[in-house]
Each structure stands twice: as C-alpha cells, then as structure tokens.
Amino acid sequence: MSASTIIFYIVSALVLVFGAMSVFTRKIFRAAIYLLFSLIGIAGIYILMNMDFIAALQVLIYVGGIIVLIIFSIFLTHQAGDKLPKPLFKRIVAGASMAAFGLIVVLGVFYKTAFKVTTEAGIDHSARSIGRQMLDYHHHGYVYPFEIVSFLLLAALVGCIVIAVKIQKK
C-alpha cells in the first residue's frame, strides 16, 4: 500500500463519518458544519484522483457558496441552539430499511458487473483541455449545453429575487 492509498481510505472514512453525523445529528447548525467537512473530504478525493479543476470548483461552489447560503438560511429561520424534534420511529424504520435494501441492490449490481478498467494514461484533465473541449463547437464540444446552463443560472437568479422579495403593503 502506498501513501496515497492510505490517505484515500482515511479521507473516504472521514467523508462517510461526517456525512452520517450530518444526517443523524439533531442540532441543525452542527448538521451544516458536518456537511461542510464532508464536502471538503470529497474535494480531497478529487485531488487524489488528479482532478484538480473539479476539486477547485467543489471547494469554490459547494464550500464557499452553498454551505454559506445554507448557514444564512438557518440563521434566518431558527433560534440559535434549539434542537430538532426526534423523527418518528415508523419513519426511521421505513427510511433505514429502504436505504439498506437499495444499498444491497446497488452493491450487488456493482459486484456482478465486470468493469473493463483500462490502465492507459489517457489525455490530461487540466483546465486547459477541459475549457477547449467545452467551448468547442465542432468536435464533440459542449458549447450548447454551456449556453443553456448559463441561461438557467440567469433564470434562477431572477427567480430567487422574485420569490424572496418582500412586498410592501401600503
């Protein structure tokens, strides 16, 4: 086992533990902080897979944007330090059995499928080649979905303002 393999197992254990704590804790602010650590661990897994650009985007958008937004909304809607109510026992049983059944089915499918893992080097995953293919409109480029996503982001921006604006009553 090389050092990067050991680091991978440590980081993935951290991701799973913090994800589980984020799901099971009853204090909502702590759930957000545990989710933050889990997302940082996922960025570490991307770095271990040599996907530097995706790791940078993960830290930038999820950790820097989405978690901050969630924490803001927690402060706007909750008293500091109050606990969430305990989930109903019937709901815990239903959710846990569904999750366990789905996990067994998915892992069974993975176990039966013979993936053809290739060990060839492949092309580089640098931001340069990603950007070149994304903005290309001849050779399997992705400029059309790129434009659609930019339009979607604009629509979401306007929609957020329209939904969350406070209408002044005269």
Binding site: L16, V23, P87, R91, M98, A99, A100, G102, V106
Partner: peptide, 15 residues
C-alpha cells in the same frame, strides 16, 4: 453508494 443512501435516509427521516 454509501454516501448516496445516507442521503436517501436523511431525506426520508428529516421533516
């Protein structure tokens, strides 16, 4: 897949 089904469990138990 473990992370996915943790999310599924949280989605169905949290209100």
């Amino acid at each position: 897949s473990a992370l996915f089904f943790l999310g599924i469990y949280g989605f169905f138990t949290r209100r």
